[in-house]
Design a protein around this nucleic acid. Structure first.
Lengths: 264, 264
DNA sequence: ACAAGCGAACATATCAGATAAGTGTAGAGC
DNA sequence: GCTCTACACTTATCTGATATGTTCGCTTGT
């Protein structure tokens, strides 16, 4: 049962397509850089001694995997990898079980708290500016909403700025893995936003509270205060979790003692 | 049976294959469960009003994406998702830049510290047993190594048990996202193990030290001590980071103040 | 000289039809 | 009831052909 499901068909390739795909993947991942273009299908077909169709299907597999960008009339070019599989997993999980949003926020609790701390240590001037602009975007959207111009649109913009804020932090963390994963998480996160917003209102809180929390995070990062940045982010996420819980009418929930806790 | 508008995909589907793939993905992710099987290629071809080849390529894209499991003679069946994209990204990143291992361990620092804390709160009896067996496996492998029977083999077994230990913690976290990501991380992690082992030796440390660290983590989890579990895991990873740094001959490195720090 | 425009060579997208080989199952035989 | 075999179904792969998009060198007008 410890046998892990990876691709243990290194030697045994039941189908020609699979072995060509494997060989191509090896080549793409190991020796080619994003932007480079693959040989033509006919070329590869000759090289691997299979029909063009087989090469085509192998290429399609890599394309689905997000490694290649194919287009009519031009050769396939190597792409910057994306976490398609992770996004698929998240979408499926949340769709099948809304409670999975708690798994998501639990994960964010680990990822984003550290992300914020790292950003406080590494953020560039440009990163700080991006954060500032995101907060400003939230303020503007909030003002529009209060003016009652177009509530739906202003909410949409608010969430977009909110997402942009967190995204900017992930980028400013200087950690490629964190940026990568956050990117893949962005889509499912939007659902989470909608829900937490509803719970937020139900609990009688205002958007100003939300903005305040973001400002606290921003300030800590700008001042290079790693500890405060992590704490602020953690509190923000805990509040969000409560919002979602309220929206889902889940039980009040036992007190969660957070691991890396700094509460004395 | 009315005429179906097939080309009305607003999501920019320049090719038939892409739109069929998109539709299938929607279907697989949204409405089907792992284990279910897709209609036959001919069937789908008729339904989408395209040739069998087009359906075939679309299916291959999903297979590459890890959503389907195809085989000769039987229909494609829906698969439990895997983070192929994430694994690809990790492999490529580490291959292109060994320093990426620090990004990896930084990420592990956030993921596994929380994972350990959560495990301390949620681990089942079976989970505890799995951890215990992993530690025992490390001890046995270490003993074999000291006896000088087969050094390479005993090292391999040691690393396998080590990985199994961390894997068991991820599973015991009860968080599906964490388990999922750890799974995807497993392969690149093995490289990391080799390297840290070398640095470990270079620094004059022994395997017993490593085992001790794992025992500390295990004890904390078994006793349900979330805080201690997180702390022990953090220290273990920090030590590992130093090992890797030693192996890569990188500068001693500035002191890193960890965000969620519990150092007073 | 130089830039715009044209066209041929190249490359992929998709179709049709055909053969080989693996899977699963219904029915024959015991 | 159980086993074993033949058959229908299904995927894997090939060949060959047509349509359409891309790229780039060459011509042409200024």
């Amino acid at each position: 049962m410890a046998s892990r499901g990876r691709k243990d068909r290194a030697t045994a390739a039941p189908t020609a397509t699979a072995s060509v795909a494997e060989a191509l993947a090896q080549l793409v991942i190991g020796e080619m850089s994003p932007g480079a273009s693959l040989p033509s299908e006919s070329d590869l077909a000759a090289r691997f001694e299979v029909s063009r169709l087989t090469v085509r299907e192998a290429i399609k597999m890599l394309a689905g995997r997000g490694l290649l960008d194919v287009g009519r009339g031009r050769r396939a070019i190597v792409r910057e990898p994306t976490a398609v599989g992770f996004s698929d997993f998240l979408s499926a999980m949340i769709r099948n079980d809304p409670k999975a949003l708690f798994d998501l926020i639990e994960f964010r609790m680990s990822l984003e708290v550290q992300s914020a701390s790292l950003a406080a240590r590494r953020a560039s001037r440009a990163g700080i500016t991006a954060l500032e602009m995101a907060v400003e975007g939230m303020r503007e959207a909030s003002a529009e909403g209060k003016a009652g111009l177009d509530v739906a649109e202003s909410e949409r913009r608010f969430h977009a700025s909110d997402l942009g804020f967190h995204e900017a932090i992930a980028l400013s963390s200087g950690n490629r893995l964190i940026s990568f994963l956050f990117e893949a998480m962005a889509a499912p996160l939007e659902q989470s936003f909608m829900l937490s917003r509803r719970g937020h209102d139900m609990r009688g809180l205002t958007v100003d509270d939300t903005i305040d929390e973001h400002v606290q995070i921003f300030t800590a990062i700008r001042d290079g205060n790693t500890k405060a940045a992590g704490t602020a982010m953690r509190e923000h996420l805990q509040r969000t979790e409560h919002d979602i819980r309220a929206a889902l009418n889940t039980a009040p929930n036992p007190p969660i003692v957070w691991p890396s806790g700094e509460e004395p």
